[in-house]
Design a protein around this nucleic acid. Structure first.
Length: 819
RNA sequence: GCGAGAGUGGUGAAAUUGGUAGACACGCCAGAUUUAGGAUCUGGUGCCUUCGGGUGUAAGGGUUCAAGUCCCUUCUCUCGCACCA
């Protein structure tokens, strides 16, 4: 596809990229004379420098923030706009396993390629602040933060069933495992994973669950992302209730969100793995129960959680006593009860819980209705007046002794108080959120700075950080649950940092890739500081991040982890705010031309380098913004890229005309001021597609003129500058101005010139447009009405009819209602 | 099933507070220019039409002088979660 370009974009773009780099045009420092409200921290999600290089999705978000930053600078803001690399990670290590190439070598090669590609798009980053998470000067502080977590009891070791991925040779966090039709799979690489009990480092993120939940309310984030985080945290409030075993040998504690349905609890169910199962099972049921437990153990998680299948379960032979009505209730086991949630046991209320209903129907257990649905709610009933399905809504209590008639919410509170008084239960809160499994059995990550000295664990002293990664012979995971580091004996064996003189062994697990990205936005503030992760004055100057732009795929993982670390840093006084990112925008994915996700196997991948060489960076930038709204998912369209390119080309050819001094004609001035207003408004709201459309309208107008007036041309260059910065710099210079256009003040519009002298007023009869009249702007409503009624054409439609009323909207329309 | 969001020309999409639906761009059509052009410029382009007009924003209903926009019902699609008691 040969481009039809004539304007020398390659020369222009190289020229100005070199200029910006040489002049450090976009370097920013902490100037105290700039008031807080004129400072902006605009952040991109930094990339993982993959071997494949940049794809067209990267420039989308980066262009959006770049346009916004350039716009802010021209409006007098000090703008912090940095870029870096999330450079620890599995692909480089897997490549090392295959080829023996050190991950450092691959990583740095990829970083150089990424940096070059990013620079070729003309983004206005302050490159002096670049960071890479694999750099020891960086991960020193990642390790430092880990030690702070450890000191505060937020990092602990535990043996627990964790997701283990054979192919990756490492454990994974819950968040990194996806449920697929083929069973649980790793989020990265789509490999099968399974649960294995292993000793792991775990971060106590659950301690922050409530704060992570509550503080979402104050954030200007997309509702969907907040909903996903809320959902992931999964807070539910209810009560823990103890049911005594009939034989008096103890009790079973359950968690319920509906303590108001306690009177309807007709049986209980334990998870097959529940500790009590073995003890309470009667001799008669023993064989059946053992077989079920064994079968449940062998089942994959997918089989266990398959909603479509019938409920299975086995009676243990034991009975418990319902504490409120002393009813004797059988105790069952079933794999629909998860041992890891709540207490691993439930009271079953089949009348008011769908799952319990299914189970009760399956096994012929009794169903007692204890909630009367509100009259206005339709509920299916059987012929004899009983419920035909579980009613899970709220209503009024029935069959509940003295509590009858209470509204659900009131009853919940009342019964919880009663249970507490009786010593039978208490208010309880549960979360779906689990603690964060933090260790990985891999090489290419931050070493965890701890030494095992016999039974005790001793942190590496802060002043000895960074604890550097040693070189290894083989990058292969040992497969025994240990990382390749375990084989580096001379690194592992070390003196105990406790000063005892005895020898210890280093922790050989490394941190997950998320660690480095949890705090990188802080390092940009003070990237060369070797005394602290960032100076407090710098943090106070810039933080929090005003705008954070990135893909929605990080909705839960990165954004939840980073918020957690930030809160810890807040608690230890390192940062000044509870939340790191005040405003978040997810750029929509750019799909292939076929409307499907770009992927190598589909062959629909567009390489930004090809677009840059064929059309130039300015065209790529503007085209990606012109495709549609930033947040929307949108298919690539090679055809319409020419529309944007043609626009820039026209701007170039316009500049070849002689610039004329003096006052431009009024009709041009009016379009100009409308354009300034629209582009200003839309750019500030990140509505770039409509701003570009307005720039096109203006160019089309200028093109029809014989002469090009400087006063009409220069403001256009300024409006263009954030969008097509290379071309704008060149045009600015050619217009006889010194560089750089990037620091010239944004043009202002005059309100009176944004309004036309004449407007078209629509005349409707009964809401249908029947005529249009040209009238001076702000014609009084009475005159509007008279003019409209006086129209011959309107008379045709109103003849012989009764005039009911006339509605006038100034400068817009007249609607004549007749009968 | 639950949660979030979206349905507008042949295509990507526009449309302050309800007030001319389809800006801008692609594509298509016509004209100009040109040795020629898939370059450039100008104009046209929702659909139907007996050229009066009719009709049109997923479907149906409602509120209103007036609905893409507000309300109700239904359908479709995308994303996320999914036996979380």
């Amino acid at each position: 596809m040969p481009p039809m370009s004539k304007y020398p974009f390659t020369d222009i773009e190289q020229k100005w990229q070199a200029y910006w780099e040489r002049e450090k045009t976009f370097r920013v420092t902490e100037d105290p004379s700039i008031p807080k409200e004129k400072r902006a921290y605009v952040l991109d999600m930094f990339p993982y420098p993959s071997a494949a290089g940049l794809h067209v999705g990267h420039p989308e978000g980066y262009t959006a923030t770049d346009i916004y930053c350039r716009y802010l600078r021209m409006n007098g803001y000090a703008v912090l706009h940095p870029m870096g690399f999330d450079s620890f990670g599995l692909p480089a290590e897997n490549y090392a396993i295959q080829t023996g190439t050190h991950p450092l070598e691959t990583t740095e090669r990829n970083i150089n390629r990424f940096r070059e590609q990013i620079k070729s798009l003309g983004f206005s980053y302050d490159w002096d602040r670049e960071v890479s998470t694999h750099d020891p000067d960086y991960y020193r502080w990642t390790q430092w933060i880990f030690l702070k977590l450890y000191e505060r009891g937020l990092a602990y070791v535990a043996e627990m069933p964790v997701w283990y991925c054979e192919a990756l040779g490492t454990v994974l966090a819950n968040e990194e495992v996806l449920t697929t039709p083929d069973g649980p799979r790793s989020e990265r690489g789509n490999h099968p994973v399974e649960r294995r009990p292993l000793r792991q480092w775990i971060l106590r993120i659950t301690e922050y669950a409530d704060r992570l939940l509550e503080d979402l309310d104050g954030l200007d984030w997309p509702e969907s992302i907040k909903a996903m985080q809320r959902n992931w945290i999964g807070r539910s409030e209810g009560a823990n209730v103890r049911f005594a075993l009939e034989d008096g040998s103890g009790d079973i504690e359950v968690f319920t969100t509906r303590p108001d349905t306690l009177f309807g609890a007709t049986y209980m169910v334990l998870a097959p793995e529940h500790a009590l199962v073995d003890r309470i099972t009667t001799a008669a049921q023993r064989a059946e129960v053992d077989a079920y437990v064994e079968q449940a153990r062998l089942k994959s998680d997918l089989e266990r959680t398959d909603l479509a299948k019938d409920k299975t379960g086995v009676f243990t032979g034991a009975y418990a006593i319902n504490p409120v009505n002393k009813a004797r209730v059988p105790v069952w086991i079933s794999d629909y009860i998860l041992v890891s949630y709540g207490t691993g046991a439930i009271m079953a209320v089949p009348a008011h819980d769908t799952r319990d209903w299914e189970f009760a129907v399956q096994f012929g257990l009794s169903i007692v209705q204890v909630v009367e649905p509100p009259a206005e709610v339709y509920v299916a009933h059987t012929e004899d007046g009983g419920l035909a399905e579980a009613f899970t809504g709220e209503g009024h209590a029935m069959n509940s002794g003295d509590f009858d008639g209470l509204q659900t919410a009131v009853f919940k509170q009342r019964i919880t108080e009663w249970l507490t008084e009786q010593g039978l239960g208490r208010k309880a809160v549960n979360y779906k959120l689990r603690d964060w499994i933090f260790s990985r059995q891999r090489y290419w990550g931050e070493p965890i700075p701890l030494v095992h000295c016999g039974e005790t664990i001793v942190p590496v002293p802060e002043e000895q950080l960074p604890l550097r990664l040693p070189d290894v012979q083989s990058y292969k995971p040992s497969g025994t649950g240990e990382s390749p580091l375990a084989k580096v004996e001379e690194w592992v064996v070390t003196g105990c940092p406790d000063g005892s003189g005895s020898m210890g062994r280093r922790e050989t697990n490394t941190m997950p890739q998320w660690a480095g990205s949890c705090w990188y936005y802080l390092r940009y503030l003070d990237p060369r500081n070797d005394r602290e992760l960032a100076g407090r004055d710098k943090i106070d100057y810039w933080m929090p991040v005003d705008l954070y732009v990135g893909g929605a795929e990080h909705a839960v993982l990165h954004l939840l982890y980073a918020r957690f670390w930030h809160k810890v840093l807040y608690d230890i006084g390192v940062v000044n705010t509870e939340e790191p990112f005040m405003r978040l925008i997810n750029q929509g994915m750019i799909l292939g031309e076929d409307g499907l996700r770009m992927s190598k196997s589909r062959g629909n991948v567009v390489n930004p380098d090809d677009v840059v060489s064929a059309y130039g960076a300015d065209t790529l930038r503007m085209f990606e913004m012109f495709l549609g709204p930033l947040e929307a998912e949108k298919p690539w369209s090679t055809g319409s890229i020419s529309g944007v390119h043609r626009f820039l080309d026209r701007a170039w050819r316009l500049a070849e005309r002689e610039l004329v001094e003096g006052e431009p004609p009024e009709h041009i001035l009016r379009v100009l001021h409308k354009t300034i207003k629209k582009v200003d408004h839309d750019t500030g709201r990140l509505e770039f597609n409509t701003a570009i459309a307005q720039l096109m309208i203006y160019i089309n107008e200028l093109y029809k003129e014989e002469t090009l007036f400087r006063a009409a041309w220069e403001p256009f260059i300024l409006l263009l500058a954030p969008y097509a910065p290379h071309l704008a710099e060149e045009l600015w210079e050619r217009a006889g101005n010194p560089p750089s256009v990037s620091m010239v003040a944004w043009p202002q519009w005059e309100e009176s010139l944004t309004r036309d002298e004449e407007v078209t007023v629509v005349v409707q009869v009964n809401g249908k447009v029947r005529a249009r009249i040209e009238l001076p702007t702000d014609t009084p409503e009475a005159e509007l009405r008279d003019r409209a009624l006086g129209l011959e054409r309107i008379a045709e439609f109103t003849a012989g009819k009764e005039l009911v009323k006339v509605i006038t909207v100034p400068n817009k329309l007249v609607n004549i209602v007749v009968r």
